[in-house]
Amino acid sequence: MLDTIVIPVLKIAVLLNAVLVAVTFMVLLERKVIAWAQSRLGPMRVGPYGVLQAIADPIKLLVKEDIRPVRADPMLFTLAPILSLVPALVVFAVVPFGGDELFYVTDINVGLLFIISVTSIGVYGIILAGWASNSKYPLLASLRASAQLISYEIAVTMTLVSVILTAGTLSMVGIVEAQQQSGLWFGFVQPVAFVLVFIGGLAETNRAPFDLPEAEQELTGGFHTEYSGMRFALFFLAEYANIIVISAVVTILFWGGWLRPFPNVEALAFLDLIPGWIWFFAKMFVFLYIFIWIRATLPRYRYDQLMRLGWKVLIPVAIGNIVLTGVVKVLL
């Protein structure tokens, strides 16, 4: 009873809250980092150096008036933000933050596939939001979004195959353990795959330079143009939760998850004093930072250029990478 129900439920409760709090602070981090990149200060008023902005923002969104356009589809308009957020949160069930059983909810033998498939459900939120709003800009945005997500999902999934080939398992914990055994993080074994997954991750989370579905300069905010208040906040939460997921996945697949640097070098054993989950979060933070950094730096792709990049560059490279990995694997 305790093992099968109470502890998992507690873990899930803690995880959900941690993720949602992390997301609010991720927003603050983004505002701060972009502000520094642009020689501004960012939020400074709420709390010291604006740290309480992370709490003020959700409160503001929660108490805002809930506006639904008259000609929107009531059922889907309500459902869309939920469909967007839930998959983003469900994914965390198989993300191991540490090697100990305490640090993950479950370790299923198809963990990586689970993440891919559940995130692929998230696209419904965006498509339905665009359609249910009964408005032209959101509709255009949701068309862009669905084409973009499907294309990049193919590229990312193809790339992950080569990682799976290297690791020989689909379990998230298993992949990190495989890196421990080989003594090399897969980022060094599969550098091409790492770059592809990161680019694909940027595109799948609708982040700059692939943020076409929410390009405010072109589509006045994109698929969530008609959304406000808490419904909008749900989209917002989903986007940032997805960024955290991608960063976590990249950390696990390519940079050894909770492992310290050079996990098999005895001389560096003193690094084990730092617990694994701190290593994990430190690595993840680097990728979160890169996400923001890219947003502050790059202009936006155009729709056709984005599709060309996905289909004519990423997917062929991903397929080539699979073939290469297979050949090397057989030869060794």
Binding site: V110, S117, I150
Partner: peptide
Amino acid sequence: VIQVLVYAGG
């Protein structure tokens, strides 16, 4: 997982 990925997600 494949059911979700291929049918629902694709």
